[in-house]
Structure formats: structure tokens, C-alpha cells
Simulated assay, not measured.
Amino acid sequence: MSKFKKKANVKQEIPTSSMPDVVFMLLFFFMVTTVMRDSSIMVKQKMPQATQLRKLMRKSLVTYLYIGEPSKTEQYGKEPKIQVNDVFIEPKDIIQWVNVEKAKLNEFERDQITISMKVDSDAKRGIISDVETELRRANARIINYSSVNKKEI
């Protein structure tokens, strides 16, 4: 006879009683932390291609301005329009819009606001020049032109 007895096969099951709690905690976490799109784009966007791109470091200081032909041409026409925050504006309204966007930031960050222009590649240079002039008048000196990366062949 042997001195040692053979241990019986013991099954250990994972307790699943707290699993619904964990699932709901994850669900609430993702619901709270998910950011929905701020505005819907109402202009056509065919982004130009570039070979040298740089990423933006502080996206909290970035405000987007869209220029392009309206999606609903029967309602707004075919001329390129300027869109900010779900509304179309004229170049003369850009100073007021920049001041409103700067007011949303902390006082020490207001001079660091970055205007990211998403311009359709078919847009005329005249409207872009008008926007640049108004941005200079509004003292928004940091301008970013958004584009997509050109695939190297």
C-alpha cells in the first residue's frame, strides 16, 4: 500500500454571478466617454492629397471650417460656401465666429487656437483668400489646411 492517496479530481468553476455587473459597468463607461460628431458636414469634401503631413498635437485647440459646394445644391446653389458649426456663414461673419470660438477656450489658450480648413479640392482660390484675410483680421494666426496622405508609388 502506498502512503499517499490519490487526490480526487476537483472541478473549479468560474463564478458568473457578477458578470452582468461588469457588463453594465463597461456599457456605462463607453456611453459616457464616447464623443459624438459635433457637426454634420453640409458641403462636399474631396480632400486634396499631400506628400508631407504633420499631425496636430492639441486637438482641443482646433476648430474646423469647411469650404465646398453645398450637398443640397437645389436649396443652396452650386457656389462654394463656408460652413462652421452646422451653419453657412459669409466671409464677413468669420471675425465674430472666431471670437465666439476663442471665448470657449481658457484665457491663456486663446492665442493658440488653430483653425483647420477642410477645403474641397475643386473650390476656387478666391473664397479661400477671403477666408484667410478675415482670419488675419480676427487675429487667428495658426491655420491648418487638412488633406489626405498621397500614396507613394
Rank of each mutant, 00 (worst) to 15 (best):
M47Q: 13
K81E: 10
L27H: 01
K78P: 00
E13N: 14
E79C: 00
T73K: 08
Q49E: 14
L56V: 11
T73F: 01
G68Q: 03
L56G: 09
S71L: 13
R58I: 03
D21Q: 10
V35Q: 15
M57K: 15
L27T: 04
F28Y: 10
S60D: 15
P15R: 09
Y76P: 01
A50D: 11
M42L: 12
M57E: 15
V32R: 04
S60Q: 04
D21Y: 15
S18N: 12
Q75C: 00
D21W: 14
I41S: 03
F29C: 10
K72V: 06
F29A: 13
P15F: 07
V22I: 15
G68C: 04
T73Q: 03
S39L: 01
L61A: 12
R58Y: 11
M36D: 09
L56Y: 03
Q49I: 03
E69C: 00
K72M: 06
I14A: 14
R37W: 03
T16G: 12
S39W: 11
S17L: 10
F24H: 03
T51Y: 06
P70Y: 02
M42S: 14
Q45N: 05
R54G: 09
P48N: 02
S17E: 11
E69L: 01
M31E: 06
F30Y: 12
I67N: 00
Q49S: 14
E74R: 07
R37K: 14
T73H: 03
V62Q: 02
L61M: 11
G77D: 12
M19L: 15
P80H: 02
V62K: 02
P70G: 05
T34Q: 10
S40H: 12
F24L: 12
K59D: 12
K55T: 04
Q83V: 00
D21S: 13
K81M: 12
Y76V: 01
P48A: 04
K59F: 07
T63Y: 04
I41M: 05
L26Q: 10
P15S: 15
K44W: 06
E79T: 11
M57L: 13
E74K: 10
Y76S: 02
F28E: 02
F29V: 10
S39H: 09
K59P: 04
D38N: 14
S60R: 05
T33G: 06
L27E: 01
S39R: 06
K44D: 09
M19I: 15
K72Q: 11
V62M: 08
V23H: 08
K44I: 06
L27I: 13
R58G: 04
L61T: 08
I82S: 01
S60T: 11
F28A: 11
M47D: 11
M36L: 10
F29G: 08
E69M: 04
L56F: 04
S60I: 02
P20F: 09
V35P: 05
L53E: 05
P15K: 12
T51I: 09
E79N: 14
T34H: 12
R37V: 07
I82E: 01
